[in-house]
């Protein structure tokens, strides 16, 4: 589905390093940010939406990289591991995570591993591979040493559903240091407050960054059904039954006549 032009970032990396090869910015660069619209209404189709984010990076120089990260509302999550018990694979050893982003996308000008070394990306949380996940508690003591396996499992399973994604090459620079980032929002991605973060990388480090919140709304039948099921479950159940009874009665009436 198409494109929602919404967020306009102004990313101004001040104190641009001199041409002499001075690679580290002198201080924390001032960052200005502006949004044209803080509400994003996605007309969700049946397969998801593409979200467009526009911004300006006045300090951008040749050789710099931009990474635009979009994080969905944080949600508690439980991971269980399958284990063979009496011949059957059962879910065992649950571990709860207090907060996992429901959605995470890192769009970048180039593949992330070309932009910065892994430890920098990990510290910034700037890759779907390094999404920070807070544990809430491990029910079984056996699960404690394997918590990093659990983290990897969350990231793998979310990535399989398209909910955690790296989109290399989806940030493109246009004239006058205007950049455009495009991320795919699958249909399962929830609505709510998203954090949008932009990082300007120079020589393998973050030279400037800024973040803002934008609210994602969805329009469309699927979303309406989902909202009703979550917010008015009793009414939803009655509607489901009414629809079924009506359909059954109609079918009987139509086919009995023939």
């Amino acid at each position: 589905m198409i494109a929602l032009v919404s967020a306009l970032f102004l990313l101004a990396a001040q104190n641009p390093p001199g041409p002499s090869g001075d690679t580290v910015p002198a201080g924390p660069p001032d960052v200005a940010i502006a949004l044209t619209d803080e509400e994003v209404r996605v007309t969700s189709g049946f397969t998801g939406a593409r979200l467009l984010i526009y911004g300006v990076a006045p300090g951008y120089r040749e050789g710099d990289d931009l990474v635009v990260i979009l994080r969905g509302p944080s949600q508690p999550l439980t991971v269980m591991r399958k284990e063979r018990i009496a011949g059957l694979w059962l879910n065992t050893e649950p571990a709860s995570f207090a907060g996992a982003p429901s959605y995470y996308a890192a769009a970048s000008t180039r593949p992330l591993h070309e932009i910065a070394p892994p430890d920098v990306l990990r510290r910034l949380g700037a890759s779907a591979e390094y999404v920070p996940l807070r544990t809430a508690g491990v029910q079984s003591s056996d699960a404690a040493p394997m918590i990093s396996d659990y983290r990897r499992a969350i990231i793998r399973l979310k990535a399989d559903k398209g909910l955690y994604r790296n989109e290399a090459g989806e940030v493109t620079l246009q004239e006058a240091n205007l950049f455009r980032a495009e991320v795919r929002l699958p249909a399962q991605a929830p609505v709510g407050d998203y954090e949008a973060q932009v990082i300007l990388f120079r020589d393998g480090g973050a030279a400037a960054q800024t973040a803002t919140t934008l609210t994602v709304h969805k329009a469309g039948l699927g979303e309406a059904v989902y909202n009703l099921a979550q917010n008015q479950p009793f009414l939803y159940g009655l509607l489901a039954v009414a629809a079924a009874l009506l359909a059954g009665w109609l079918a009987a009436a139509i086919f009995a006549r023939r």
Partner: peptide, 17 residues
């Protein structure tokens, strides 16, 4: 499917336990 070794050993369940 119940007895064969699953290709994915982990399951995600929304919400805390």
């Amino acid at each position: 499917d119940l007895i064969a070794t699953p290709s994915e050993m982990y399951t995600l369940i929304p919400g805390g336990l």
